[in-house]
């Protein structure tokens, strides 16, 4: 496995929100973390990024133990993150947002920006517009594109489709499938479980901070019990 988090336990102020959680994702794979509200999905993601300190467990990237490495340095190692809220620079133009994504890289980033423009054509059109003025779906694209600018091997998305219409959601998932094709490991937390599983290779279902189910996307989709409990029948 390219990226794996094993037996993570941690939380805020001495209370463990996640207990003994494990996640794995390989290059060219989409893995979703699902579960009811308050199950600790976002917390788990923060734990993998190093924003939240762990009580036990470790995080491995391509065999290297990165548990003790700071968030900022994990980005240099090829992990990128799209937060759920405040995930773009609202006062900067679209192009400047992308440039900031590639802040750590000194080489010519114009190619990389062009690459993003082919991946997200709408952004090319709006490249000089202030990002805060874009629609919800477009902002989400800016956010993902900014995260991709760091040349990540692992892309983490915290609820990328929160608050967008079903049509836009379809579009965003299509983009995520395109990202997968570039041999990037995609790990996402999702509320829209059914749609997420449809594009995912594998999924984890968290309940009260613990791994409850895991398996291939279509397997989880077909399982009667899971459908009843988490996917609305």
């Amino acid at each position: 496995m390219y990226f794996s988090a094993n037996n993570l336990t941690g939380g805020y102020g001495g209370v463990n929100i996640i207990e003994d959680c494990s996640f794995k994702v390989n290059l060219g794979e989409i893995v979703s973390i699902l579960g009811p509200n308050g199950a600790g999905k976002s917390t788990a993601m923060k734990a993998m990024l190093g924003i939240l300190s762990l009580n036990s467990g470790d995080v491995l990237l391509n065999g290297q133990d990165i548990t003790k490495i700071k968030t900022q340095d994990r980005i240099k190692l090829g992990i990128s993150f799209v937060p759920q809220i405040k995930n773009i620079f609202t006062e900067l133009s679209v192009k400047e947002n992308l440039e900031m994504g590639a802040f750590l890289f000194d080489e010519n980033i114009d190619n990389k920006i062009d690459e993003m423009f082919t991946l997200f054509p709408i952004l090319k059109e709006k490249r000089n517009q202030i990002a805060g003025e874009l629609s919800g779906g477009q902002r989400q694209q800016v956010a993902i594109a900014r995260a991709l600018m760091t040349n990540p091997k692992v892309l983490m998305l915290d609820e990328p489709t929160a608050g967008v219409s079903p049509v836009i959601m379809e579009e965003l998932f299509q983009h995520i499938l395109n990202i997968k094709k570039q041999n990037i490991a995609v790990l996402m937390v999702e509320q829209n479980a059914r749609q997420a599983l449809e594009i995912s290779d594998r999924g984890y279902i968290l309940v009260t901070g613990k791994n409850a189910y895991e398996g291939k996307g279509d397997y989880l989709l077909k399982d009667k019990e899971i459908r009843k409990a988490f996917l609305g029948g």
Binding site: Q72, I75, F81, P83, K86, E91, E96, M100, F103, R146
Partner: peptide, 22 residues
């Protein structure tokens, strides 16, 4: 300039600036 833009980015969204390696 890149540094100037990063200053604006930091002022706009501190957390995201940190995630971008600023």
């Amino acid at each position: 300039t890149k540094t100037g833009k990063s200053m604006r980015a930091y002022s706009d969204n501190e957390d995201l600036a940190l995630l971008s390696g600023i």
